[in-house]
Computed example of a mutant assay.
Amino acid sequence: MNDEDAKKPAADEDLIDIDSPEALEDPDIDERFAELEAERDEFKDKFMRALADAENSRKRSERDRREAEQYGGSRLARDLLPVFDNMRRAIEAIPQESRETNKAVIEGVELTMRELISVFKKHGIEPISPEIGDRFDPQHHEAMFEAPLPGTKAGEIIQVSADGFMLHDRLLRPAKVGVSSTPG
């Protein structure tokens, strides 16, 4: 075996010398070319799908990260809302005549409530505080009862039992209200 024979690949019948005149006349070349184009298109399609899938995964994980950052503390916030309610009820339950003797305790509870509201606001939690006479909004209010009340129109808030809260753009808890059923 000489050096030239060693450099040649062993029996490659599939390889076509495109410079030879026979290659251009080979009837299988068009078929082989079409096969290679189809294979190329298949790989390109798979590549584009994998690229799109990777981009979708990146976007999905970014959205999930943002949502976890914004709404991750919603369970803790929801669990703290009764604490806020109880502190408000405690202040409202103190009779007017004993307010002066319990002034320090009342100030402490009010200070704690203001601090709790400040922490809520810092984390995107905003109170929903409807007023008597406001229109009932089922997106932000929960009707605890309906009652006819003279001088009101149907759908007006006649009592506020508890404030509601929003966490950014999501309802954390609806405001609990009583609604007038007086016919208009």
Rank of each mutant, 00 (worst) to 15 (best):
113 M>C: 11
176 K>W: 07
112 T>S: 15
104 A>G: 09
146 E>T: 14
121 K>H: 07
116 L>I: 04
125 I>G: 12
175 A>M: 03
174 P>I: 08
127 P>K: 11
142 E>N: 09
122 K>V: 00
145 F>S: 08
140 H>G: 02
122 K>R: 15
137 D>T: 05
148 P>G: 05
179 V>E: 06
99 R>A: 04
153 K>A: 13
144 M>R: 10
133 G>A: 09
137 D>Y: 14
125 I>Q: 07
171 L>S: 11
176 K>Y: 11
133 G>I: 08
110 E>N: 14
159 Q>V: 03
159 Q>C: 01
133 G>E: 08
131 E>C: 09
151 G>E: 01
175 A>T: 00
118 S>W: 01
114 R>G: 13
145 F>P: 04
142 E>F: 14
157 I>T: 09
132 I>G: 12
152 T>F: 13
137 D>H: 06
170 R>I: 02
114 R>S: 15
171 L>H: 05
143 A>E: 10
124 G>K: 12
118 S>Q: 07
142 E>K: 13
114 R>F: 11
160 V>G: 10
119 V>F: 09
150 P>G: 12
113 M>I: 15
134 D>E: 08
152 T>N: 04
149 L>I: 14
135 R>C: 08
130 P>D: 00
168 H>N: 15
168 H>C: 01
108 G>P: 13
108 G>Q: 15
175 A>D: 04
130 P>W: 02
155 G>T: 05
144 M>Y: 08
141 H>S: 08
133 G>M: 07
153 K>P: 01
153 K>Y: 06
147 A>I: 06
101 T>N: 13
117 I>K: 14
138 P>F: 07
175 A>I: 00
175 A>G: 07
175 A>Y: 01
149 L>C: 04
141 H>V: 02
116 L>F: 14
98 S>H: 02
169 D>Y: 13
117 I>N: 09
102 N>E: 07
173 R>Q: 14
114 R>P: 05
178 G>A: 09
99 R>V: 01
97 E>Q: 06
171 L>M: 12
103 K>Q: 13
122 K>S: 14
107 E>A: 15
167 L>T: 14
128 I>T: 06
161 S>E: 10
146 E>W: 09
144 M>E: 09
138 P>W: 01
132 I>R: 15
147 A>N: 03
135 R>Q: 12
130 P>A: 05
155 G>W: 03
147 A>M: 09
175 A>P: 02
120 F>A: 04
133 G>H: 11
121 K>W: 01
126 E>M: 08
166 M>C: 11
165 F>A: 04
163 D>M: 03
149 L>T: 08
108 G>I: 06
159 Q>W: 01
151 G>M: 05
134 D>N: 13
130 P>H: 05
102 N>M: 05
100 E>Q: 13
123 H>L: 06
104 A>E: 13
110 E>A: 12
108 G>C: 12
111 L>W: 04
120 F>G: 07
112 T>D: 04
149 L>D: 10
173 R>S: 13
164 G>F: 00
170 R>T: 03
132 I>K: 12
140 H>Q: 10
100 E>P: 01
145 F>E: 02
136 F>M: 01
101 T>C: 05
155 G>F: 05
162 A>R: 10
102 N>W: 00
104 A>T: 14
122 K>M: 12
123 H>P: 00
134 D>C: 07
126 E>I: 03
169 D>P: 02
135 R>M: 03
155 G>R: 07
152 T>S: 12
122 K>I: 03
170 R>A: 06
